[in-house]
Design a protein around this nucleic acid. Structure first.
Lengths: 146, 146
DNA sequence: AGGTAAGTGGGAAATAGTGGGAAACGTAAG
DNA sequence: CTTACGTTTCCCACTATTTCCCACTTACCT
């Protein structure tokens, strides 16, 4: 399971080190796609296949036209990336700019995917979620944590 | 069952000794996550698996904004930590700063989890709860607990 | 009072992350 | 067809961080 948060640098050659902790689970090939809320998603190749099937299978769950748009963005923007010998991937310019990445990037494990955020945007986002304490507590209660 | 309160030091390498009393019940792997009211939660690995399963209940969750925020906090904020040979774990910087930890940490057993508090914040919090104790007791009585 | 267990701290070795340069490749112009 | 330039890919080296190991101190139990 992919969990945890790491701050890494993306350099002028668009190289990004994936945290060592994630490498074994990701394998050597990953897929980078546009994400939601201003981040990018990274899936292990296997997981991507599963997700892709699932997305095309969920046609009924939203309006047809919305579904088409979502799929075009997801699939059209997706890129295969090899993890090189020292654990880095290349993030193409168009994805890098979609996520407004400038230097420092937050690499966040969210169960079955990684998310890439511009560091500043990530911290703002996290702050917003944190302030919704009531909702958080309620959901934790539902799960049986509290 | 995890009960009791201990004050331990967290050093500049982010190492924190877990009280010996808790070690057997926790096993050798634990998961540290953001908690509520400014503390961190620690779960035994087994307990975390149970929680994660509850969280990943619905597959459509990725497509709903509230779920994304909640999952990002729960999974992105969580970290697996091995208890080393002398009973210490590493608390990553981002969690340490989320809980505003500075040197002394209160390690509190709360049934199925541990909570980590900055010592100062913990004592303030406990003071507030103490002052509300009468009201709490009355409520518990109404519910029929006491 | 001595022995054992627990908590704390520091140094050395290993690893991870970053950056730069050289080689390979492709493209375009001469 | 050749050459020059720009881009991409691969490889190496440096630095910072992390991890492991050992030693000291304190507290507790016998």
């Amino acid at each position: 399971m992919l969990i945890g948060e790491y701050i890494h640098a993306i350099d002028e050659k668009n190289r990004l080190s994936l945290p060592a902790k994630f490498r074994h689970e990701l394998g050597k090939k990953v897929v980078v796609t546009p994400g939601l809320d201003g981040c990018l998603f990274i899936f292990a190749e296997k997981e991507w296949v599963r997700i892709a099937e699932h997305l095309s299978g969920s046609e009924g769950s939203m309006l047809q036209s919305d579904n088409r748009g979502f799929n075009r963005r997801m699939f059209g923007g997706a890129v295969e990336a090899e993890i090189d010998s020292i654990g880095r991937i290349l993030v193409p310019d168009f994805l890098k700019s979609m996520a407004k990445m400038t230097g420092k990037v937050a690499v966040v494990g969210v169960k079955n995917r990684l998310e890439l955020w511009d560091e500043k945007i990530w911290h703002e986002y996290r702050g917003v979620v944190e302030r919704k304490a009531d909702q958080l507590a309620e959901r934790l209660g539902q799960i049986g944590i509290l």
